[in-house]
Amino acid sequence: MTFTATVFIGTSLDGYIARLDDDIEWLTSRGEKAGEMGFFEFLDSVDAVIMGRNTYDKVIGFGEENWHYGDRHVGVLSTTLAEDADPRVHVYRTMDDLVTDLDKRGIKHVYPDGGRLVQSFLHAGRVDRFIISVAPVLIGSGHRLFGDLAQDVPLRLDTVADVGGGFAQLSYTVEK
């Protein structure tokens, strides 16, 4: 058994997910005007959330009231986070360990969250779909959603939607 993975993420129009100092205020302040953009409906469709260490630290910084993952499996791919750092998460050291464990658990739909983690999933050929909410702003520099790729990743456009607040939401399927 193998899972599918859908990336649900916000970017600036010029393709950044955070400033170089990891600030995302440019996204969150605009996102407040747009609302949740289908995030909670999407979250209801996944049975595991996997994030990178930086994203985990960001989520923890939002406070307990913003831990929206409920009882679904939450993992953090990190070589530095202590395995017992948070009883709500399972810490994975390698992508291979992560994939093996998710398959053993019978996980069907995964939400990979965080720039470097998404890039790791892409490099491993593990992304099946993208839902990208594009913010109405150019920030000029920062952390890109997509880093260098060894080869093209062909996509099929499924939908384009105006989700409010000036955001466009693009849904793509990865053609494998």
Rank of each mutant, 00 (worst) to 15 (best):
E175L: 14
Q169A: 09
A168F: 08
L102E: 00
K108R: 14
D84V: 12
K104E: 14
G114C: 10
F8L: 13
S29C: 07
G140R: 07
F8W: 07
R116H: 10
W26V: 07
F167K: 00
H123R: 11
M1I: 12
A85P: 02
E64V: 13
D103M: 10
P136E: 03
A135P: 01
L155T: 08
K176H: 09
A168N: 09
E41T: 15
L138C: 13
D96N: 12
L13Y: 08
D44G: 15
L149S: 12
I24F: 07
D57I: 11
R116N: 09
V160F: 09
L43Q: 06
P154D: 09
E175K: 10
V91I: 13
I9C: 11
V137E: 05
V59A: 02
L157V: 15
R105A: 10
H143Y: 13
V46C: 06
V91T: 03
M95S: 04
G70A: 15
D71P: 01
D21H: 12
K176G: 06
D152I: 15
D86K: 10
H109S: 10
F8N: 03
G70E: 14
G166W: 01
D148H: 14
F8K: 02
L122Y: 01
A5V: 04
Q169M: 11
A168L: 14
G125N: 06
L155K: 05
G165C: 05
T173A: 14
F42Q: 05
A135I: 04
A18P: 03
P136A: 04
R30H: 11
L13W: 08
E41C: 13
L138S: 11
M51R: 01
Y69H: 06
A168E: 06
T11F: 01
A150R: 10
V174M: 07
G52W: 02
D96M: 07
A161T: 08
G75Y: 00
Q119K: 07
N66C: 14
M1P: 12
D103F: 04
G52T: 04
V127I: 14
D148P: 13
R30T: 07
Y92T: 01
G15A: 11
V153H: 02
D152S: 15
G140H: 09
G52R: 01
F62S: 13
D44N: 15
V99S: 02
L149K: 08
D113E: 15
R144N: 08
